[in-house]
Write a protein that binds this DNA or RNA. Structure first.
Length: 227
DNA sequence: TGCCAGGCCGGGT
DNA sequence: ACCCGGCATGGC
């Protein structure tokens, strides 16, 4: 029994996926993500930005910086209440304090406090490792893999889904892994390209594709789209 | 004023 | 396997 085929040929979508990258790169230029000074700061930002505007995350990161809490060792010795207070501007701060705690304790418990060691290994292995940590879902895991670990793991976020759906490249019900697979099938697994592509999707998303915004003067407007 | 933001978890079908 | 409420701040 043959597996169910995609509704459109994968190669056609793959060409469009590659075309969107070229188009966005031409429109916005390289984004040089992630906006963080160190891998540890990157991981912290990835957790703090879950369902949260980045401007709020920046306040929280600044608080952590002033408190000297941007290393895993410093985070580890910061009590829950103090940590929650420092990250308060990022919202859902009790939840996020627990998630930062879970991450730090995992690195200590399994990798002797070395983030580098915990991000080293085969992509699939490290990904499952991250997903096993409480508070690390697929998007956060892929962000950490790509932007802290240098692994070619494509990041799918709300903007990615909206943009692909708007241009009929995925079904409205497409799941996370399905969308990620689409990019992996269309692109050579180059961390530099994956890095830029996700950042570019966020850039165009913020400009043109927020939840209740209509795309006007969007760099992708030449593509077929709804509404 | 209400809705939204670079999600994820846990409990219920 | 989905579906939904909860988490919570600052901006528009």
């Amino acid at each position: 029994m043959a597996r169910r085929q995609p509704e459109r040929p994968a190669t056609a979508n793959a060409a469009t996926i590659r075309g969107i990258y070229e188009c966005l790169l031409a429109a916005y230029g390289p984004q040089h993500w992630w906006p963080a000074d160190t891998p540890t700061e990157m991981v912290i930002g990835a957790i703090l930005t879950q369902n949260t505007a980045w401007t709020n995350v920046e306040r929280a990161i600044q608080n952590l910086r002033q408190a000297g809490c941007l290393t895993l060792a410093a985070l580890r010795r910061t009590p829950d209440e103090k940590l929650a207070r420092l990250i308060q501007p990022s919202g859902t701060y009790r939840v996020k304090a627990a998630r930062l705690r879970a991450f730090v304790e995992h690195v200590w418990g399994h990798f002797d406090g070395s983030l580098d060691a915990m991000l080293t290994g085969e992509l699939g292995v490290v990904r499952r490792r991250l997903l096993g940590i409480h508070g690390i879902g697929p998007e956060t895991a892929d962000c950490i893999l790509l932007y802290a670990g240098g692994h070619p793991s494509f990041v799918v976020d709300a903007y990615t889904k909206r943009i692909l759906r708007r241009h009929f490249l995925i079904a409205p019900t497409a799941g996370y892994d399905e969308i990620r697979d689409l990019f992996h099938a269309a692109l050579t697994p180059d961390p530099v390209v994956f890095n830029e592509y996700h950042a570019l999707l966020v850039a165009v998303g913020k400009d043109h594709c927020r939840a209740k915004a209509v795309c006007e003067d969007c760099p992708l407007e030449h593509l077929p789209h709804d509404e």
